[in-house]
Computed example of a mutant assay.
Amino acid sequence: MIRRFIRIMAIAGVAGAAGALFAARPEALQPQALDGLSADPARGEAVFWAAGCASCHADADAKGDEKLVLAGGQRFASAFGTFVAPNISNDVDAGIGGWSTADLANAMLHGVSPDGAHYYPVFPYASYSRAALQDVVDLRAFLATLPADPTPSAPHEVGFPFNIRLGLTLWKALYLDSDWVVTGDLSPEETRGRYLVEALGHCGECHTPRGALGGLQTDRWLAGGPTPDGKGRFPNITPGALDWSKADIAEYLNSGFTPEYDSAGGHMALVVENTAHLPAEDRAAMAAYLKRVAPVK
């Protein structure tokens, strides 16, 4: 009787573990999701700059064409450990040269690697999840035109328990949400700005405070907060603190100069290098959206 009970409990345990693993499997695109979409690398270049790929994956001191060598290596300290940007160059072995378009889409929209593992959300897929599939298709085509670099990706320096990636299943259940943060009756310009700020530009990843598990506190959207290394603060860029005009914001995203003739520094300088590549109407759209965000004191 006891043996039978132990056997039943063992079977139940195995079944429970299998069920948990099944539930923890990363979500991925349906095979037909990309059907009918054709790639345009020229459009993909605009997506590349809007998404800020070079800001993390190129060398922090890169200039000019060096920005297009995406060998990774930048380090990002946080309370959970230090994350290292990987090589996403066109190298087949060290980078993503062997990735399909679906592989890139799964990474950006679902935070899933080609081998089915969860990515850490330091890769801002929580924002990219709002991106249009057409933009991902075009981005993949542009990335394929960039140089290959054989530099191996360095491992993240993350200790227990954060090195157990299955735990990211819970994180995604709590925080991976492709709904728009700012809703309501937006103009076409504001709607375009929302797409650039909330999705491709992933501005909320820095300018929105985070909770204990690292999820964005969207009730204080773009209200600023401490930097991940704890050594500074990201500014509040809602109308409750940023009183710049729409033209002031658009100019800052183009030149990096503030209305007080100060200039962007730190990682924001890299962001401005990206937004300066965008059409003027896109920078104006981002400014229009920021003027519509709920003010936070």
Rank of each mutant, 00 (worst) to 15 (best):
P226L: 09
P226G: 08
P226V: 10
T227D: 01
P228C: 06
P228H: 00
P228T: 05
P228G: 01
P228F: 05
P228R: 03
D229I: 10
G230P: 09
G230C: 13
G230M: 13
K231T: 12
K231F: 13
G232P: 10
R233C: 14
F234Q: 05
P235A: 15
P235G: 14
P235E: 13
P235S: 15
P235F: 13
N236W: 10
N236H: 14
N236D: 13
I237H: 05
I237G: 00
I237P: 01
I237D: 04
T238A: 06
P239I: 06
P239T: 07
P239S: 08
P239L: 05
G240F: 07
A241D: 12
A241I: 14
A241P: 07
A241K: 12
L242W: 07
L242K: 09
L242P: 02
L242E: 04
L242I: 07
L242G: 03
W244A: 08
S245M: 12
S245R: 12
S245C: 14
A247T: 15
A247E: 14
A247R: 08
D248Y: 02
D248R: 03
D248N: 08
D248I: 03
D248P: 02
I249K: 02
I249M: 07
I249P: 00
E251Q: 11
Y252R: 01
Y252M: 03
L253N: 01
L253E: 00
L253Y: 00
L253W: 00
L253V: 01
L253T: 01
N254V: 07
S255P: 02
S255L: 05
S255K: 05
G256C: 01
G256L: 02
G256F: 00
F257A: 06
T258E: 07
E260K: 10
Y261N: 14
Y261A: 10
Y261D: 15
D262W: 15
D262Y: 10
S263T: 13
S263G: 08
A264F: 06
A264H: 07
